[in-house]
Computed example of a mutant assay.
Amino acid sequence: MKRPGKKAATDRSFVVALSRGLEVLRAFRPNDGLLGNQEIAARTNLPKPTVSRLTYTLTKLGYLTPVPRFEKYQLAPSALLLGYAALANLGVRHLSEPFREQLMRETGGAVAIGGRDRLSMIYFGQSRHGVVNVQLDVGSRIPIATTAMGRAYIWALPDDERAALMRDMREHYGSRWPKIRDGIERAGETVAKYGFTISAGEWQDDVHAVGVALKLNDGTGPYAVNCGAPAFRFTEERLRTDIGPRLVAMVRNIEAALGGLAPQTNQTNNQSNKELNKKPKPGGKVARVAEGIR
């Protein structure tokens, strides 16, 4: 966890104690099971005495359940209700489901929709076939910087927000940043030309995926959608010429449905395939924008 920055520390409306309590809840991850005060302190960078007071308070409020035998805690139903309430209120999750299911059947890949949490994207909707070896589900986190979903999200942001995110990632990744930044810049060029991003083994060696940003007119988001599969199923050529254009068409249809418009036809795929036959020029305006915030 990052400690509250100078801006937050001097913001009289910012409640530090509340932020620390929420950080304790955030320390619990899928498949974690039980966590003790020492583990929570390590994950949040908070002093152990502070963590002890916070876990005591959260227990009294019903957000944590103590397990005295192990001197540890687990999330209580009251905490789970917050997550379920958030999912229930994400209309795009429910509306996108039939579109995701259709693309999953057509391609054999796993299709997910997610939103940003700091330097990660969190899945809040997932459609996958039982034979697809992509072990991610609702609540899973993937990095923004190296995944197709994350990169699609990056290039959907306004310039100033993208610049701030790039600075945060540069600080986080340190010496690894130049290589990661190059991948993000390439993704920007791909988005500018084709409307989708590609991550072929850049996050996990054996996973290939494409990503497309989903933009709404209600002030929420942006979100992003991906379609991925093991590398032997989704070759880079298939990502470019088939899966990418299909995902773009699907996302545009979701946006149209949310806006009350008629879905697009297969013309989107035909136009995208024509564009894919053209060789992109190196560099370009999109890359230069990223270079200006290194």
Score class of each variant (00 low, 15 high):
residue 179 K to C: 02
residue 247 L to Y: 03
residue 199 S to G: 00
residue 55 T to L: 03
residue 40 I to W: 01
residue 137 D to N: 12
residue 278 K to N: 13
residue 188 G to N: 06
residue 107 T to K: 08
residue 197 T to C: 11
residue 115 G to Q: 05
residue 252 R to F: 07
residue 182 D to V: 07
residue 276 L to K: 04
residue 234 F to M: 06
residue 17 A to V: 05
residue 162 R to T: 04
residue 253 N to Y: 03
residue 161 E to G: 03
residue 132 V to I: 13
residue 93 R to W: 03
residue 245 P to S: 05
residue 243 I to N: 07
residue 10 T to R: 15
residue 193 K to E: 09
residue 230 P to N: 10
residue 275 E to L: 15
residue 68 P to T: 07
residue 21 G to Q: 13
residue 125 G to S: 15
residue 166 M to H: 09
residue 96 S to P: 01
residue 192 A to Y: 11
residue 262 A to G: 04
residue 77 P to V: 12
residue 129 H to P: 01
residue 48 K to M: 12
residue 33 G to D: 07
residue 18 L to T: 08
residue 10 T to A: 14
residue 85 A to Q: 12
residue 124 F to E: 05
residue 286 V to Y: 10
residue 4 P to T: 07
residue 159 D to Y: 02
residue 149 M to G: 00
residue 109 G to E: 10
residue 128 R to F: 08
residue 243 I to C: 06
residue 250 M to V: 11
residue 26 R to E: 12
residue 17 A to R: 15
residue 40 I to P: 00
residue 246 R to K: 15
residue 293 I to Y: 15
residue 160 D to Q: 14
residue 12 R to Y: 02
residue 169 M to A: 09
residue 110 A to S: 12
residue 253 N to M: 10
residue 68 P to C: 11
residue 250 M to E: 02
residue 264 Q to V: 09
residue 49 P to L: 11
residue 174 G to H: 04
residue 180 I to H: 05
residue 27 A to E: 01
residue 107 T to H: 01
residue 34 L to M: 07
residue 72 K to D: 05
residue 226 N to Y: 02
residue 198 I to H: 02
residue 263 P to W: 07
residue 193 K to N: 09
residue 240 R to Q: 06
residue 287 A to V: 07
residue 95 L to W: 07
residue 108 G to R: 03
residue 71 E to Y: 01
residue 272 S to E: 09
residue 149 M to C: 08
residue 242 D to C: 09
residue 199 S to L: 11
residue 124 F to Y: 13
residue 99 F to M: 14
residue 5 G to W: 14
residue 157 L to V: 08
residue 124 F to S: 03
residue 11 D to W: 14
residue 23 E to Y: 07
residue 47 P to D: 05
residue 4 P to V: 12
residue 54 L to F: 04
residue 54 L to K: 00
residue 226 N to L: 13
residue 245 P to W: 12
residue 61 L to C: 07
residue 81 L to Q: 11
residue 37 N to C: 10
residue 203 W to D: 15
residue 184 I to S: 02
residue 197 T to R: 10
residue 39 E to D: 09
residue 243 I to S: 06
residue 181 R to Y: 06
residue 136 L to P: 02
residue 190 T to Q: 15
residue 37 N to R: 07
residue 235 T to L: 10
residue 18 L to Y: 06
residue 3 R to K: 11
residue 292 G to V: 04
residue 25 L to W: 06
residue 213 A to W: 05
residue 10 T to W: 13
residue 49 P to K: 06
residue 42 A to N: 13
residue 262 A to L: 09
residue 244 G to I: 08
residue 261 L to P: 00
residue 289 V to Y: 10
residue 26 R to C: 10
residue 154 I to S: 01
residue 114 G to I: 06
residue 150 G to P: 01
residue 51 V to R: 02
residue 106 E to N: 04
residue 62 G to V: 10
residue 83 G to P: 00
residue 175 S to M: 14
residue 44 T to G: 08
residue 114 G to M: 11
residue 18 L to I: 05
residue 274 K to P: 00
residue 34 L to A: 04
residue 280 P to L: 13
residue 136 L to F: 14
residue 65 T to I: 01
residue 178 P to C: 11
residue 167 R to M: 15
residue 84 Y to I: 12
